[in-house]
Nucleic acid binder design. Structure first.
Lengths: 200, 200
DNA sequence: GTCTATATGTAGATAGAC
DNA sequence: GTCTATCTACATATAGAC
C-alpha cells in the first residue's frame, strides 16, 4: 500500500516504451520489468498477464493521445482553420511519441478486437469534420472531392513520416534532430499542401 | 533433386504470406510449414534458420517489388507524367500485396541491417526524380517546394491507406472489395491531388 | 507490495530413419 | 528430399517466502 500508484504508473510508462519500440509480439516482459526497475513477478501482480498489460498501455497511450487530436477540431467552424488545427495537433502529439503511429497500425492489424473502442473515440469529431467538408463543397469553397478521401489524405500526410522514419533517416541521411526540424516544417507546409489542392 | 525448386518457391510464398501478415516476431515456423504443405524440419533444410528465411522473403518480395516501382520513373522526362506513373505503379503493386508496406515499415524499424541494400535499390531513380522536381521549380512550372518533402508526401499518399487499412475498413465500414475500389479511384485522384497542390 | 525460485508451455532447431 | 521424434532454450506465468 506504500507506492502502488507510482509503481503501476511506472509499469505503464515502461511498457509503453517497450511495446511501442518492439511491438506486442517482440516485447519481453523481462525488459518491461527492468525498464520499470522491478521484476517480472510484480508485473503479474499489477497486470494479470501480458495481454492485460498491453490493453492498459493501449488504452492509456493510444486512446488518450488520439482523443486530444480529434478534440482539436471542436473549436473550429471553418474548414481551412480546422485542417490547420488538426495537422498541428497531430504532429505535436506524435513528435512526443514518434513510434505510436506504427505501433497502432500494427496492433490494429494484428488484433481487431481493441479497434472498436479506439476508433469510436473520435467518432463525433470525425463526423463533424466530414460534414464541414461537405458544406464547403456545396458553398463552392473547395473542389469536388470525397470528404472521406480528403480525410485519408490528411492522415496520410501526418502519420506517414513517423511510420517511415527509419527509411527517411537513411535515405536523406539525417539525424534525429534533423527529423524533428522536418516535422516542425511540416506543421506549416502540410496544411498549405492540402489547402492548395482542394481550394476552388 | 525431384522438386526442390518448386518446394523452395512454395516455402518462400508461404513465408511471405505469413511474415507479411503476422510480422517477423509473431510469425510461426509451424504456420509457414503448414501453409507450404510441408513440415518444420524441411524449412530448416532449405533455410538454415528463421532469420535466413526472413531474409530470403525480404529480398525476393520487398526488394523486387519496390524495384519495379522506382523503375516506372525511367521512361518519364516530365514531372507530372512521372508522378502519375509512380503513383499508379505503386498502387498497382501494393494492391497485389496489401500488407507489404506495413511489413516493411516494421522490419526496417526493428532491424536496420537489411535497410541499406533495400533502400539503395532505387537510388538512381530517386535522384533523378529529385532532379526533375528541381528543374520544374527553376522553370516556374511548380511552386517553391523542397523536392524531398514532395517525395515524402507522394509516398505517404500511396502507402498510408494500406498501412491504415484495418482502421479505414472499420471507420468507413467497408469491405475488402470496397477497399479495392477506393484504391482504384486513388490511381487517378492522388496524382490530381498532388499536381493541383504544386502547380504554379 | 515485492521478492526468489520454479513450473508450464511453446517455438526454434536438430538427429536420424526412410 | 522429406519425414517423425526429440532436444534445447526461453518467455510467460505461478507459488510461496518475506
Amino acid at each position: 500500500m506504500t507506492s502502488q500508484v507510482n509503481t503501476e504508473q511506472r509499469i505503464l510508462n515502461a511498457a509503453r516504451k517497450v511495446f511501442t519500440q518492439k511491438g506486442m509480439a517482440a516485447a519481453r516482459m523481462q525488459e518491461v520489468a527492468e525498464e520499470a526497475g522491478i521484476n517480472k513477478a510484480l508485473l503479474h501482480y499489477y497486470f494479470k498477464d501480458k495481454q492485460h498489460l498491453f490493453e492498459g498501455v493501449f488504452k492509456e497511450s493510444a486512446q488518450r493521445q488520439f482523443g486530444c487530436i480529434w478534440d482539436s477540431l471542436k473549436q473550429c467552424d471553418c474548414l481551412f482553420p480546422a485542417i490547420e488545427a488538426f495537422v498541428t495537433a497531430y504532429l505535436d502529439r506524435m513528435i512526443e511519441e514518434p513510434m505510436l503511429p506504427l505501433f497502432i497500425a500494427n496492433e490494429l492489424n494484428r488484433d481487431a478486437k481493441g479497434l472498436a473502442d479506439f476508433v469510436d473515440r473520435g467518432k463525433e469529431s470525425r463526423a463533424r469534420f466530414l460534414h464541414m467538408v461537405e458544406e464547403a463543397r456545396k458553398n463552392g469553397e473547395i473542389i469536388d472531392i470525397d470528404p472521406r478521401e480528403l480525410l485519408v489524405n490528411i492522415m496520410a500526410l501526418c502519420a506517414h513520416p513517423f511510420i517511415a522514419q527509419p527509411m527517411l533517416k537513411h535515405i536523406h541521411g539525417i539525424s534525429d534532430e534533423a527529423f524533428r526540424r522536418m516535422i516542425q516544417k511540416r506543421r506549416k507546409s502540410v496544411p498549405e499542401f492540402i489547402i492548395r489542392s482542394i481550394r476552388a
